[in-house]
Nucleic acid binder design. Structure first.
Length: 151
DNA sequence: GCCAACGTTGGC
DNA sequence: GCCAACGTTGGC
């Protein structure tokens, strides 16, 4: 069982959208490190925080489970898609995605400012400068600590 | 294989 | 909107 933090820009897709849709493909990953992580380490039943980035209040807004393991991200083939990649060919797909299932929207969100204020969380990639990975793995003790902050 | 130029991310 | 940080590209 793994624990993850997954970033998305809420203008594109946010926790309320997921609460409505229940299950959604997490497409648009165009970074090799992230692709390798979801391919090799992300398993059905893993838990993930839904993080809103590039917005007024960046932070963790809810949680979800992984409900379908890595498969081909077909949006890379679609010329009209935001993350179209002409170098990803149908006979040699370059990019993968997983499906996530809504589990909970937090009544009390945990902001990036909150995350930065606890030394227990100082190893998390998301609080470190220059981190650009849209998906990062987190420790169970970090997960539990954050869950407690939402209570 | 180096590395400058360029594009993107994302907090502020 | 700015800009630091970082990944990717492509010429050599």
């Amino acid at each position: 069982m793994n624990y993850w933090l997954m970033k998305n820009e809420p203008e594109d897709y946010n926790i309320d959208d997921l609460a409505r849709d229940k299950v959604e493909p997490w497409d648009g990953i165009r970074n090799y490190q992230v692709r390798n992580m979801i391919r090799d380490d992300m398993k059905n039943g893993d838990l993930a925080f839904f993080y809103h980035s590039n917005c007024d209040v960046p932070g963790i807004y809810g949680l979800m489970t992984i409900c379908k393991e890595a498969y081909v991200d077909h949006t890379a083939f679609d010329k009209k898609a935001k993350y179209y990649d002409p170098k990803s060919k149908k006979d040699a797909p370059r990019w993968l995605m997983v499906d996530v299932k809504f589990k909970k929207k937090f009544k009390k969100i945990v902001t990036l400012k909150d995350l930065k204020s606890y030394k227990e969380l100082s190893n998390m990639r998301v609080v470190q400068r220059g981190n650009r990975l849209s998906i990062t793995k987190i420790e169970k003790k970090e997960w539990d600590f954050i869950i407690n902050l939402t209570k």
